[in-house]
Design a protein around this nucleic acid. Structure first.
Lengths: 339, 339
DNA sequence: ACGATTTCCGCAATCGATTGCAACAGCTGA
DNA sequence: TCAGCTGTTGCAATCGATTGCGGAAATCGT
């Protein structure tokens, strides 16, 4: 006597006059061929009539697979991550997986805790958009062990598959564009050094400047990828160096630079050109429209999810290599020809 | 003989020389008082040494609670939803719950499918940011039944607890501001009529116009909350009506209006004032900075999550009422005094 | 018509944690 | 000394679906 007459597999089986196991097989496309046509019909009919809903939880317990992939982002409000998430979700969905998204913040310890919770919920794998150059959550995943893929940010030494935009190439595009527009004194608004995007873009900037025969030491580092940090760093940059253009490690920092420039009574691009990085949503409509390095966030997310699915289906870990996508430059109104 | 020597509760119990059940109780703060102090110590020690990780899945199967709340948004890339999600997540986390976020798109049928998947994953409740004025996913949830709360968008007739911003008040703020600035001929860029935000804001606009003694029939409806739809609708609005100001149902539409205005060779705010709605991230830095109605997305999300948790903990459904938060107006550069 | 296959289906174990029930030890008070 | 109580612990059932194994039934060939 069940008060809450839940429709479980048993109920369907009873209604269809077959055994639970037969009902299970009839309902699962992969095992359906083991069941007679008449039985399949009866079971499907019964399931439909009773409004049966398969309990993924119980199935996961038995099969050991949840069809869930945990995705960690540092800050869901940062528009950069939305399209990456989108790319991950659609790619996962195509293969029958869902994303369990967690907003983990920037603190490494909290990230580990959150990862632990995801693992506790039996996610089949982890995709991190949070990785630091030396990331303890990656270590955790390797210990457990659980499949893990990095996206957007990679570790310095590559321990797991990672898909990132070519940060060096991106900075070269930015610097070459500015040089072509007549700029010589170019500053860099660097991101946090413990993140690959911060470190790689700084390195790329310096390399590009050297290649152009310029001195690349006009660098100030922002504390975080936030507008406020970008403003602060810009003020410092302009105080220390005499530049005509700024390459920011990130669109958020570039927007911070906009504010600082306005606050100092200067104008962009008349007094100062600015180049961002990521081409995140809406930067085409800020004032002035931001010239920026476009990464392909949907592609990034899609490839990361693809690697994860391949890992899960194949069962063996893919090589711990860097998968790099090439960025492009979108020239808008924040850069101008000088001299 | 287990090849993959998984540490389950049994392993911990063995190491601590107690029964599984004792180990379970010792590890659960709520039942710990039933266990002797010595045993607790041994169990905790063993769990720590073995690196035991509680399997939330198995626990959920037994207890019937997953501590997961499904959250559906129509478009994760739309920056409006990020802060709402943020609010939901932090409020849930404070109570030990996590959010299972699903990007369901705008199609009602797909939304039902996604909701079904969430339910299949045994989420304890559903929070919808996708609701239409008559929403079939809500019907689904009521049938199942499963706790459900609406956020940002409500149904026309309130079947479940819903927390929304006071759309009527928001439009009144917008219209009154424009009237105070000397505008008389004001148009409305309406959102989709099947969404409460579209319908309520339209109604609010008309009411506010009437109150101001003005004729409020300069209305064109956008097909969706996207910039492209906003552009199209704006072109039509300006073709049909001679207005000096536009109140958009949504910031995305307002940004679309910006584009259309520029494309028509006009300028904002010189030729046309524009007011948005939501104050989503970054609209403070578009050109010109958008005057908009600020809703409190974190508060919205937080209250929705709070209602959900109360429902889950209490066990009985809270009244199916509308919870309304009052918006405020943020005056920036897209509106100007005329006459 | 009979043995050999193939097809279909039921049985029971399994995943890992939780929890009602009962047993048990040690203690108190009569 | 024993009934009764309290505080701990063990036992076994339970949540719901999956799946290896073996047997029954149906089909086929000769």
């Amino acid at each position: 006597m069940r008060l809450r007459s839940k429709v479980d597999l048993q109920a369907v089986a009873d209604a269809a006059q077959v055994h639970r196991s037969t009902a299970s097989r009839a309902l699962n496309p992969a095992t359906r061929h083991l069941v007679g046509a008449a039985a399949i019909l009866r079971v499907q009919e019964a399931a439909h009539v009773l409004g049966y809903r398969r309990d993924a939880l119980a199935a996961s317990l038995r099969t050991g697979r949840s069809m869930l992939v945990g995705v960690m982002v540092p800050d869901i409000v940062n528009p950069v991550f939305a399209p990456i998430l989108q790319g991950i979700e659609t790619a996962l969905a195509r293969c029958g997986y869902s994303a369990l998204v967690a907003n983990a913040g920037n603190d490494a310890q909290r990230q580990r805790v959150v990862a632990g919770q995801l693992i506790g919920h039996r996610v089949d794998g982890l995709i991190l958009a949070t990785a630091a150059e030396e990331d303890s959550t990656v270590s955790l995943a390797l210990e457990v062990p659980i499949p893990i893929v990095l996206v957007n940010r990679a570790e310095r030494i590559c321990r797991v598959p990672s898909v990132v935009s070519d940060d060096g190439a991106g900075m070269r595009l930015a610097v070459e564009h500015l040089v072509a527009e007549g700029h010589r004194r170019i500053g860099h608004l660097a991101g946090p050094a413990h993140l690959s995007t911060g470190a790689q873009r700084l390195a790329g900037f310096c390399a590009a400047m050297r290649e152009a025969g310029l001195d690349g030491c006009a660098v100030v580092q922002a504390q975080a990828y936030r507008r406020s940090a970008g403003s602060l760093a810009t003020v410092e940059l302009l105080r220390k160096f005499d530049v005509t253009a700024i390459v920011a490690a990130n669109d958020m920092l570039a927007l911070g630079a906009y504010r600082a420039i306005a606050a100092l009574g200067l104008r962009c691009p008349d007094d100062l050109s600015v180049v961002g990085h990521n081409d995140m949503p809406l930067v085409d409509q800020v004032a002035p429209p931001l010239t920026t390095v476009r990464i392909d966030p949907l592609g990034l997310g899609g490839r990361a999810a693809g690697l994860m699915v391949a890992w899960l289906e194949d069962g063996s870990a893919p090589p711990a290599m860097l998968h790099v996508t090439t960025p492009s430059l979108v020239v808008r109104g924040s850069t101008r020809r000088i001299g």
